[in-house]
């Protein structure tokens, strides 16, 4: 047999021998980047308390992942950006003025209980950030529903407490909402820009759409989930959202308030917990939209995005199984042939 010279130490491996530049961490850090506008707007409107909550949430998430993986003697993967992303999303979903232990608990539940105990990245059933927030909302219902007026001035520390637009809509109706915001144009503008009470990162539709556009441009998310999610929600808001009559609701208010934009573009599209076949994603998104509106219109909470996503996460495996792809060249047998 031919001698293999030292200078010809060759790597032998199975094809293919080239790979794309894409890596998991590049995707995760890009999603982090895409949330930056929303985080900045949150900081601008809600001040140092919001920045504080975001920071605590991120640090706790990364630290929890590090400690858990060290404890389990598994590979430490905090650099892949996924724990950072979970922490960031937990933070963006918090009311601006929560005490420090709220983001700590939220990120802990998200990373340790929802993600790592199920096997870590790729194996979790539920969206970690959504589960973290759900845990907080149920455990600390009071703290999690104190909303601050956006102040637009970073220095002003004591903003007034108020209700979110969806809260007003639920408790007092559309007339009160009009009274607060003046006219409809103003209402839409304020909601679109993010000048309203709400979670730190959910208020500014504009900032979130800038981030989402970046993700579309990079091909990291597809239209399937956001469109089916918001399309279903808008249709339900239009049909059932009006007082007393069908087809009298205002779908736009529902689309640009609450956590709809953040949820539909950034959380429901989480690779791990949504179906991976495009057709299944349409069902998943439609389910999210339906459940969100069911909760908003008929449920006890003014907002339902997070619960809707968590419930649909449960359906992901069965949707994946039901919507397998069609093999190239496969044709359903002719009815004639089956009769034979």
């Amino acid at each position: 047999m031919a001698e293999i010279k030292k200078e010809h130490q060759l790597t032998v491996s199975v094809s293919p021998h080239v790979k794309s530049e894409e890596t998991t961490s590049r995707i995760m850090w890009s999603v982090n980047l895409s949330l930056l506008p929303a985080a900045l707007i949150g900081a601008y409107f809600f001040g140092p308390r919001a920045v504080f909550a975001l920071t605590i949430a991120i640090i706790t998430a990364v630290l929890c992942e590090h400690l858990y993986q060290r404890g389990m003697k598994s590979k430490i993967t905090i650099n892949d950006g996924s724990a950072f992303l979970t922490g960031l999303l937990v933070g963006l979903n918090l009311p601006p003025s929560v005490p420090f232990y709220i983001p700590v608990i939220g990120s802990f539940v998200a990373i340790v209980i929802t993600k790592q105990l199920f096997g870590g990245l790729g194996f979790n059933v539920f969206n970690p950030a959504a589960a973290g927030r759900a845990f907080l909302l149920i455990s600390f219902p009071k703290l999690m529903t104190i909303w601050k007026e956006p102040t637009a001035a970073f220095v002003q520390m004591d903003a007034k407490t108020t209700a979110t637009p969806l809260g007003i809509l639920k408790e007092e109706g559309i007339a009160k909402l009009m009274e607060v915001f003046g006219d409809k144009t103003n209402l839409y503008t304020e909601l679109f820009m993010g000048h309203r009470a709400g979670s730190i990162g959910e208020t500014s539709t504009l900032a979130l759409l800038i981030g989402a556009a970046f993700l579309f441009y990079r091909g990291y998310i597809s239209w399937h989930i956001p469109v089916s999610f918001m399309g279903t929600a808008a249709a339900m808001a239009w049909v059932f959202g009006g007082k007393g009559a069908l087809f009298a609701g205002d779908p736009i208010i529902h689309l640009i308030s609450g956590g709809m934009i953040l949820g539909a573009f950034f959380m429901a599209t989480d690779y791990v917990t949504c179906p991976s076949v495009k057709k299944g994603q349409l069902i998943f998104g439609a389910g999210c939209g339906f459940l969100t509106m069911l909760i908003r219109l008929k449920g006890g909470y003014p907002e339902g995005v997070m619960f809707a996503i968590l419930i649909m996460n449960c359906f992901t495996p069965i949707i994946d199984r039901g919507f397998k792809t069609k093999v190239f060249g496969f044709k359903k047998p002719d009815s004639k042939e089956t009769k034979k």
């Binding site: 894409e22 998991t24 995707i27 993967t77 892949d80 096997g119 870590g120 990245l121 790729g122 194996f123 690779y271 791990v272 949504c274 991976s276 076949v277 495009k278 397998k324 792809t325 069609k326 093999v327 190239f328 496969f330």
Partner: peptide, 20 residues
């Protein structure tokens, strides 16, 4: 790393399989 279920392989498989 682990499969993050991003679905890229499913979208591009010329045979319409689910490589993931």
């Amino acid at each position: 790393g682990p499969c993050i279920r991003c679905g890229r392989c499913i979208d591009i498989c010329p045979m319409g399989l689910m490589p993931s």
